[in-house]
Design a binder for these strands. Structure first.
Lengths: 260, 260
DNA sequence: CGCCTGTTTGATCTACCTCAACTGCTGTGG
DNA sequence: CCACAGCAGTTGAGGTAGATCAAACAGGCG
């Protein structure tokens, strides 16, 4: 990810790792890389760890790095002068962070859990990109995915009610975790919330109190259960889907199918 | 842009045109194309015109085309089952529309003014992309620009007041038209609104009445003048910038500067 | 002239915000 | 082992920005 200097002394390179054994090897930008391209990346990569709350890049900052989330969750934020904040990106392992071909980044990136990044000097990465069409192709596809997600998010922010927003957010997490387990969405599924109520509120364009109230409303309606404050359980799948404003049913929508 | 079949008899190819004389030759995806690549595109392109309100692609529809807006303005929409609609993209000349490498498009595209598109069969375009890194590079850059715009938009939808939303929208149009004239934002500048109040409301995540009320509020505060219902004039630039929630001054922010 | 569509304005209603208090957990120190 | 500070989360009471419902207005066009 792009960043100039380590702000608050981000962790130095810790346990070294090869790309071969990397947990995001087959999902990140590098997933299309050939063996030779991979070894090239292997040579120029470096890792850095960030603690909870630590800033990864500042808004509007000049940045000379790009990279991928290896473990943990990071958030992108935009802030108005008076302090109103909106989350504009939530990055899970394999997400790309930073802007190739740009000196500036128009948002702030923060670690919301402990985060480990696989980083490259921007210029070095750009060079590799220029010589590897497949890598650039992968980056394009990931960017298109991000745009799709951003547009769903815009619909949420512009038109959904507080209840629908929260349910939609939980749905996104539920789908994600089901996908990782190679399962479909199911009744009784547990959802780990990687972020605080405050971060959820910033994601949803709501206040923390409204998030909390809607959480208990969904619980009182028997749609979800609160196993712990950071673990919810789907107790009524159909109602859950309805609450999220999606035509019910655990089907993953076909629009997302990749053609190539 | 992506689309299967012409829905309501879109206009057939009208006045033929060569890429050399094309008004978006130096701004669209094709702007990085070499002479030979351009002639290749020239050979496979075709034009289609759409009338106001005409659907270009349906939400979730299988599509076999991509393309660029040559003239006119198109909008991308997402709709909930109960009819709530949110605009998620506003496309001006040179904007790219459609999803290479995807069969489906997760939004509806509509002509909001008469629109002329320069189109390609998706598969043919993908083939050209695969053989031209510079074309693919341009598409990546345009997509990154779109993400930045989407994130600004998310901040608007999630955190700005109705007044700020409208002012921000007018600011975007003002910047655009100033840029086209190679001028900076200035007092007295006129802004043509290419879209109806309803479309503005769909853009801003508001109702038509609120848009109208905020428009008259800005007028009564002496910030803008309503030359016609579809033409506004900036009468107090500093206040205008403040209302848009941006640090005042007509400066185009540096984040947008291209590095490469 | 009268209709239709886009826009403005008014009156009321409500979802969400704001401010404030309270709960429960975790860690710290005496 | 208890006291208590600190933080995340919940709950309550009241206020408000924007939605909703309704009516009037303006311009274009048959």
């Amino acid at each position: 990810m792009p960043m100039t200097a380590p702000h608050d002394a981000p962790k130095l390179v810790s346990s070294p790792m090869t790309c071969e054994s990397c947990p995001i090897r087959h999902k990140a930008v590098c997933s299309y890389a050939s063996t030779s391209e991979l070894s090239r990346l292997d040579g120029i990569k470096f890792y850095r760890n960030f603690e909870i709350g630590q800033e990864i890049v500042g808004e509007g900052e000049a940045t000379s790095f790009v990279g991928s989330v290896v473990t943990g969750v990071a958030a992108l934020h935009k802030t108005l002068e008076d302090g109103r904040r909106q989350m504009v990106g939530l990055l899970f392992p394999s997400s790309f962070i930073g802007r190739p071909f740009r000196q500036w980044v128009p948002f702030e990136a923060v670690a919301v859990t402990p985060v480990r990044l696989c980083m490259f000097h921007r210029s070095a990465f750009e060079e590799v990109l220029s010589e590897s069409q497949s890598l650039e192709r992968r980056l394009l596809e990931m960017t298109l995915d991000e745009i799709d997600a951003a547009r769903d998010w815009m619909l949420l922010l512009g038109r959904k009610t507080a209840r629908e927003r929260l349910a939609s957010f939980l749905m996104i997490l539920a789908r994600r975790s089901a996908l990782l387990d190679n399962q479909s969405l199911r009744q009784g599924q547990r959802i780990d919330l990687p972020i605080t109520r405050e971060a959820i509120a910033e994601y949803l364009g709501l206040t923390i109190e409204t998030v909390s109230r809607q959480m208990t409303a969904l619980r009182k309606d028997g749609i979800i259960g609160l196993v712990e404050t950071r673990v919810v359980e789907i107790t009524d799948l159909a109602a859950f889907c309805r609450a999220a404003g999606e035509d019910d049913g655990p089907t993953d929508w076909p629009q997302q199918a990749r053609s190539a």
